[in-house]
């Protein structure tokens, strides 16, 4: 990646600024939404949705995952599968229990 040309790096820095603006706006949006006191389900859904967008922006541009090598993707996909299992299966055990 360090082999990129000067123009490309300059263009990347402009993207960084745009991402920053988007992150700042989304932060204000998510805080603003919390003052509406939506129903708990809707609030969780919306907050996590916004957080996911913000997280994706950071991962895609700041961590330049948008153009990364296959091996890194493979490692992260594997991790995400186990991450989901770690979140969902204990919860499944909680909801499906005897007595």
């Amino acid at each position: 990646m360090s082999g990129h040309s000067v123009e490309e790096i300059r263009r990347e820095t402009r993207v960084y600024i745009l991402v920053f603006v988007a992150l700042a706006v989304l932060t204000l949006v998510t805080v603003g939404v919390s003052y509406l006191h939506l129903s708990f389900g809707a609030a969780v859904g919306l907050a996590l949705f916004i957080a996911s967008i913000k997280g994706s922006l950071v991962a895609a541009f700041f961590m330049h995952l948008i153009s990364e090598r296959r091996l890194v993707y493979a490692v992260l996909i594997l991790t995400m599968i186990f991450f989901v299992a770690l979140i969902l299966l204990p919860l499944g055990g909680y909801h499906d229990r005897l007595g």
Binding site: L89, G92, G93, D96, R97, L98, G99
Partner: peptide, 10 residues
């Protein structure tokens, strides 16, 4: 630990 049948089947 009192797991239900669905999750224990899994």
């Amino acid at each position: 630990t009192g797991m239900g049948t669905a999750i224990s089947s899994f």
